[in-house]
């Protein structure tokens, strides 16, 4: 390995470790008695600036556990999962499973799903702009062929399920609303995140609607998706769901099944 490659890798090793850097690296630095402090500027940049990017991605998690705990977790996360891309727009993909792996957080079992909502929000925010389904597109399909068509959800759409009322928790933390009481006994939550135009929307939907969208997202025909959804939720009514959502940006394309 060239001296440059060796030095750069040793430097990166030292950034990842919270310990005093190896003697072999410190010996490479011009020393005026402050070599360690000088190195620390870079390690602080690495930990804190990437931690800032994570805090920007997960503002609700930060509110739920507090600044101090968030910073401690962010430092550990940055060391475990340093940025894989130069643009930090989507940094923090592994944070939801990371939260699940921390024993101290087991008393907050909803945290990881709330984090998934936040990550999906940002993914939608930066996703490619796509048109929404138009009346024109649907009206060209013969009525008898509709059921066998694929009805594709908008490409920016994400589906998140949790056993806890994570939509309510996420919603309560969008504003400084101090008076809300959210009971975990409210139970499960089915969340849809999408960006039909410029604003990201976060909606709570029924269990049936969630599974309907999930099957449609997998490319199944409308008939099959409906059957699967009604098995999950026999109260699912495709009529009222589609009347409300067929043209509101939830969908972007209808086409004959492949």
């Amino acid at each position: 390995m060239s001296p440059l490659a060796e030095l750069q890798q040793a430097f990166c090793d030292a950034l990842l470790s919270p310990e005093v850097p190896a003697e072999s690296l410190l010996n490479e630095l011009v020393d005026d008695g402050l070599a360690l402090q000088r190195f620390n500027v870079y390690r602080n940049n690495f930990i804190v600036l990437n931690g800032d990017a994570l805090a920007d991605m997960y503002p609700v998690i930060k509110r739920l556990i507090g600044e101090e705990a968030f910073r401690a977790l962010a430092s550990a996360y940055v060391r475990l999962h340093p940025p894989q891309e130069r643009a930090l727009l989507l940094y923090g993909a592994q944070f939801p499973p990371f939260l699940e792996s921390i024993p101290e957080l087991s008393g907050l079992p909803y945290l990881s799903a709330v984090a998934r909502i936040e990550y999906a929000w940002t993914e939608s925010y930066h996703a490619e702009d796509s048109a929404v389904l138009s009346e024109q597109q649907v009206s060209t399909v013969p009525t008898e062929a509709l059921g066998s068509c694929q009805l594709l959800p908008h490409p920016t759409l994400h589906l998140i399920h949790s056993d806890y009322p994570v939509h309510a928790i996420w919603q309560a933390n969008q504003a400084d609303d101090c008076n809300q009481v959210i009971s975990l006994d409210q139970g499960e939550s089915h969340v849809v995140i999408l960006r039909p135009d410029i604003d990201v929307e976060v909606r709570e939907v029924s269990r049936g609607a969630f599974h309907f969208l999930k099957r449609l997202q997998l490319g199944e025909s409308i008939d099959r998706a409906y059957e699967a959804a009604s098995q999950q939720d026999n109260s699912f009514d495709p009529g009222s769901f589609l009347t409300e959502h067929l043209f509101d940006g939830t969908f972007y394309k209808i086409k004959p099944s492949a």
Partner: peptide, 22 residues
């Protein structure tokens, strides 16, 4: 500067070794 030592990025501007190789 540089920011890429392994297959990950420091998101920082780290000074170079000022040699002919660099």
């Amino acid at each position: 500067s540089w920011s890429h030592g392994y297959e990950w990025y420091t998101n920082d501007l780290i000074p170079l070794l000022y040699t002919e190789e660099s």
